[in-house]
Amino acid sequence: MFKIIDKYKLASKTHYVLIEAPIISAKAQPGQFVIVRIHQQGERIPLTIADFERNQGTIALVFQEVGKTTQLLASLRKGDYLLDVLGPQGNPTEIALYGKVILVGGGIGVAAVFPIARALKEKGNVVTAIIGYRSKEYVFWEEKMRLVTDQLFITTNDGSYGQKGFVTDILKTLIAEDYKPSVIFAIGPAVMMKAVAELTRPYNIKTIVSLNSLMVCAMGMCGACRVEVGGKTYFTCMDGPDFDGHQVNFDLLIKRLDTYREEECYCCKK
């Protein structure tokens, strides 16, 4: 059982939860995730480790209410317990001295971008981040992101906060203005990561994406999370979640994310 030390709402449908998990915290690195199961009949869902505090023995998760399990998680309170937390899973993001880097975060993906930005900044990189949300009510962690970046851009789709438009609009401008980073890290909805990869492809800018495929075991034993990268099949949980964005078959990823649409609708209505 894993104790919830703190839990609050960050933005519309978006929640922060701080969990006591010393063993996970001790090994956690940017880019890794945990598997969470809330109750005896529950499913296993992957959530990125958004922050970790080694000397406190805690990890922080940020999640969006999209279906049954995330809604249930949203209903838990400080002092409650999570039944199962497995992690840290997945390979850490490669943190190195790249020089100039751009991080692109879309929606809930901003939470996953944060620890990577912090680590890259600590390494001495010049860190630019572009974070985008649907609208003002979804914005979270702006200040936190500002602390770990040299330059921060914010967009909302409807223009209710920051610049109106998509993260790719800003990225396009930066590249057009000849701001060429050594590497771009993009984390967010699959369509966003696809758009970023398409944008950077002609410029040959290395683009790392973190794939959010459906998962069951997350230990390399089921293959639910398989993705195609460079024409070959990989398991996101074992070989990822970071992959070369220019090689990823995003259309397949997007379709596979929809596999259980009918069942999910049914489950939520219950």
């Binding site: 009949q41 529950g42 499913e43 296993r44 049954k68 399990t69 069951v216 259980y260 069942e263 999910e264 049914y266 489950c267 219950k270």
Partner: peptide, 12 residues
């Protein structure tokens, strides 16, 4: 994950 008991169990 007992998906044969879905939706009583959450995994489809």
């Amino acid at each position: 994950m007992q998906a044969y008991k879905f939706p009583e169990y959450d995994t489809p």
